[in-house]
């Protein structure tokens, strides 16, 4: 039967692009921190030592940027202080988990940076604890979205591991890219091989999870199916062009190439593309989950 919805009420998209930017930057910060602490915590990963300090600096700067983004996205920014008062804490909210993780990450990032630059033996302890916080951050940003059953796309067990992998790939990618521009000749063959392996693993994992998410959506209920149609219609270029082609297939092709894949140029190009996809995927996931509800 033909029908027309003659009157409805429009609702705003509550979380705009600034949240996607926050997820992206905090993910890169966490990924860079993991790369920094790796040679100190894992005995067999000494090859990453030349990048340890650069990675920590990048991670810390990104961490400093993300706080204001979150605070000024609140409609009452002055009240962000409530998040630090235990009598306000509501532990069932993923935002509260995020606040605690951010505080922990901030504290242990400072301690780790201090130990790193003073060559204090505590660097291993602070690196390990900071690393756990760094792993927790992208996982919580995934939970921020995944715990809402009313939102198609978001309510999926894939989101948290996907954000963790994107965090690793974009963080390592950014460090590789900056190292390339600062002094690419200092990157040893062993180090390049290590970076390639991390990027290759994360790009493959991203591909698998993106595929799984898309297939499940396509076979989902009406809301899920229609959301996928909306993604194609509204974010076709970002989804197919940036996320799939430029950000997943081409980096995989580059990294799998026997010689070029482990070269400084190959890793730099793959890193730049992976970073691009890391943002575009978060942008698409965040906004597409809120499209349909604008009219409901």
């Amino acid at each position: 039967m033909e029908s027309i919805v003659s009157s409805t009420v429009f609702h705003v998209i509550p979380w705009g692009a600034s949240y996607a930017l926050y997820f992206f930057l905090i993910g890169m910060s966490a990924g860079a921190f993991i790369l920094s602490m790796l040679p100190h915590v894992c005995p067999g990963e000494g090859k990453y030592m030349p990048l340890s300090k650069t990675s920590w600096v990048i991670s810390f700067i990104l961490l400093l940027i993300t706080g204001p983004i979150l605070i000024f996205d609140l409609t009452t920014p002055g009240r962000f202080i409530y998040l630090f008062f235990p009598n306000y804490w509501h532990m069932s909210s993923p935002l509260m988990w995020g606040t605690l993780l951010l505080m922990g990450m901030g504290l242990f990032s400072i301690l780790y940076g201090w130990a790193l630059y003073t060559q204090n033996p505590l660097v291993k302890l602070f690196g390990t604890i900071g690393g756990l916080f760094a792993i927790g951050l992208p996982i919580y940003t995934g939970f921020d979205l995944a715990v809402h059953p009313g939102r198609p796309v978001w309510h999926s067990a894939v989101i948290s591991p996907l954000f963790l992998i994107l965090s690793l790939s974009s963080g390592v990618g950014l460090v590789s890219l900056i190292a390339y521009f600062i002094n690419k000749d200092a990157l040893s063959k062993e180090l390049l091989e290590g970076l390639r392996n991390i990027l290759l693993f994360s790009a493959t994992a991203t591909f698998v999870m993106l595929l799984a998410q898309s297939v499940v959506l396509a076979y989902g209920g009406e809301e899920e199916h229609y959301t996928l149609t909306l993604i194609y219609a509204n974010y076709g270029f970002l989804y197919w062009g940036i996320s799939w082609l430029l950000g997943t297939f081409i980096p995989l092709g580059i990294l799998l190439a026997p010689r070029f894949g482990a070269s400084t140029n190959g890793i730099a190009i793959a890193s730049a593309l992976i970073i691009l996809a890391s943002y575009s995927l978060r942008h698409i996931i965040l906004l597409s989950g809120q499209l349909i509800q604008q009219v409901y």
Binding site: H11, V12, P14, W15, D73, L74, T75, T76, R79, F80, Y82, L83, Y88, S93, L95, D144, V147, H148, P149, G150, R151, Q290, Q293, Y296
Partner: peptide, 20 residues
Amino acid sequence: ERCIGCRTCMVACPYNARHI
């Protein structure tokens, strides 16, 4: 007096029953 305007509740509501 407690609301910080993070809009998480708006996101969580499947019925769009909340507004700023």
